[in-house]
Amino acid sequence: MNNMKQLTRNAIPEREGWLRSKQTQKWIFLLFAITPAFGGYLLFTLYPNLMSAYYSLLNWNGISDPVFVGFQNYVTLFQDKYVWRALFHNLIYMFFVPAFVILISLLLAYILTNKNYKGTPFYKVIFFFPNVLSSVVVALLWAFIYDGSFGLLNSMLRLVGINIGEYYWLGEIKTALWAIIPPYVWAGVGFYVIIFMNAMVTIPKSLYESAILEGATPMTRLVKITIPLIMPIVRVGALFLVLGSLKGFEHVLILTNGGPAGSTDVIGLYMFNLAFGAEYHNYGYASAVGMFLFIVLVIAKLITDKYITSQTVEY
């Protein structure tokens, strides 16, 4: 017993010395601090991303044994008219959603920053609010708006004397694709209003004052001073919106699930339904579609970078 105590007493200073050695302590801390987050990232993000390239070379329904088929899935993909239709829808969203979001938020940000009307902070808060709502809530709100019999939109049209009967905006091939755009715009504008306002505030007042002295109209001031100076921020915003509307499919999934007759299908959703949809599952082909989307995203990024002027303006 006594011997034991003696031993432990001797051991303590040694252990403390070992712990105090700053290097060891640092590495223990680093291990403790980095492993969970970085390990999780490697396991749940990086590894699946790498694996999807491999999966795209398989014929696999997720349950039976996978069969290696080489580039067969990609050959199928290029002949799959549904992929091209979905890509076409993506391109429509990719153009119209960013265009509307940026135009509307630039306009609202310009009014709020330069006009000093009463209630500016109130408007900012209201515009931003849809950004905190979940995609389910946003999609359901818009499903209520678009409903044929009782929807807000048709009721309003009837109120101003336009009676289009029980027209289901999301149920008709002609309009469903376009009806998906407003929910995205509605949910996205507020964020960019704030971003653009912050950018506009940093433009020195003196620029505007000298422009006014030289007789520039408000329109000239907007086009010649405000827009060029916040162009770098607009560019970043446009890039985010373009990539977002290529990738995103949650609203479409909830509002129409690609219907009617595939008229709102987008690549992300096509992939999703191939893998997790109600009908047959094909993980291999779905992964090939996913890789295709990846390539489209890279191309879109390069094009956006190139064609939305990147030169910065200085005065």
Binding site: K26, Y41, F44, L46, P48, N49, S52, Y55, M271, G290
Partner: peptide, 29 residues
């Protein structure tokens, strides 16, 4: 510490990954 730059580089990779094509392997995992 040694290797910090490497870790940052690997994390920055995530900016280039769309994530959407990872849904299936992630589900299998």
């Amino acid at each position: 510490f040694k290797g910090r730059k490497l870790i940052w580089g690997i994390i920055m990779l995530s900016l280039f990954l769309p994530g959407i094509n990872a849904l299936i392997p992630q589900f299998v995992l």
